[in-house]
Design a protein around this nucleic acid. Structure first.
Length: 265
DNA sequence: TTTATTTGACCCAC
DNA sequence: GTGGGTCAAATAAA
């Protein structure tokens, strides 16, 4: 048996300590972000697709965490042994919605160099597909709710459904998720596309480049999983599709199905 | 047969 | 003592 301390460098020890503190203290997202800034090599992401991030992972453990309804799964880079890649991640379900949101804690950067833009595209595409499926289901459920509300005779004694407020909330959440996902994926495409041209200008000024574009593995990096961004109230899905999902972005990711289904659905 | 996953036990920090 | 992280044998899947 290899003693754990043999495989731990100082940064991972730091990360471990950070995780413990992170979990023992308040679990607010802001505090986790604050921790990310302090502790190098660790980052936390919230995603609907924790298992497709462009890298290959091997599960080495699973554990129920106190105060959490869902188990935490422990993954290490598949090339941990072959290439000594120190990257690892913990995945835990964050809520029980459909689809469930996952919290993914990444520790250490990959040194195996097995990720490529193609797999990132695939990861992004799958991620969007999952989110879109969920959005579709959500929208359909809301639509059914609305139809039931219209069709149900008012003389019936059933209580009124949680109608317009809940429906609007659902639409708002849906927009937030779609906007966040698309922006995140588009950033990923843009970065991957411009990587060969040595173009850091493609990135938003206030964000560091993603993991695939960085050589500095000691710095915190951002992968292409979505962060939840608030969509403006007057933003419609048609706006998103017409202005953002132009062929320049849709074709490389083969997202025509998404554009189609959203337009026709 | 090889590779991946599961799961109980162990280690260690707090 | 408790809880999170990891190990490694057992098991399942390809």
């Amino acid at each position: 048996m290899v003693k754990r301390s043999d495989n731990m460098d100082s940064s991972s020890e730091c990360s471990r300590g950070a995780h413990k503190r992170l979990l023992q203290d308040s679990r607010s997202y802001d505090q986790e972000n604050a921790m990310k800034k302090v502790c190098i090599g660790t980052r936390t992401e919230y995603t609907y697709a924790p298992y497709h991030d462009g890298y290959q992972w091997r599960k080495y453990g699973q554990k129920m965490i106190r105060g959490n309804s869902f188990p935490r799964c422990y993954y290490r880079c598949t090339y941990h042994q072959d290439h000594g890649c120190p990257a690892s991640k913990h995945v835990e379900q964050h809520n029980s919605e459909d689809p469930p949101l996952f919290r993914v804690i990444y520790t250490n950067e990959h040194t195996c160099g097995t990720s490529n833009s193609a797999s990132d595209y695939m990861a992004s595409s799958m991620q969007i597909q999952q989110i879109a499926d969920a959005s579709l289901r959500k929208a359909q459920a809301a639509e059914r709710l609305r139809k039931a509300e219209v069709e149900t005779p008012r003389l019936m004694h059933s209580p009124p459904p949680r109608c317009s407020g809940g429906y609007n909330m659902a639409m708002k959440e849906e927009k937030d998720v779609i906007v966040s996902s698309l922006l995140t994926v588009i950033r990923g495409c843009h970065i991957a596309e411009s990587a060969g041209n040595n173009s850091a200008a493609a990135l938003p000024a206030n964000r560091p480049p993603p993991a695939v574009a960085r050589s500095d593995h000691h710095s915190c990096s951002y992968a292409i999983s979505p962060e939840l961004l608030p969509a403006s109230d007057d933003l419609t899905l048609d706006f998103i599709l017409d202005s953002v999902l132009d062929p320049h972005w849709v074709e490389p990711l083969d997202l025509a199905w998404f554009k189609e289904s959203t337009h026709t659905g």
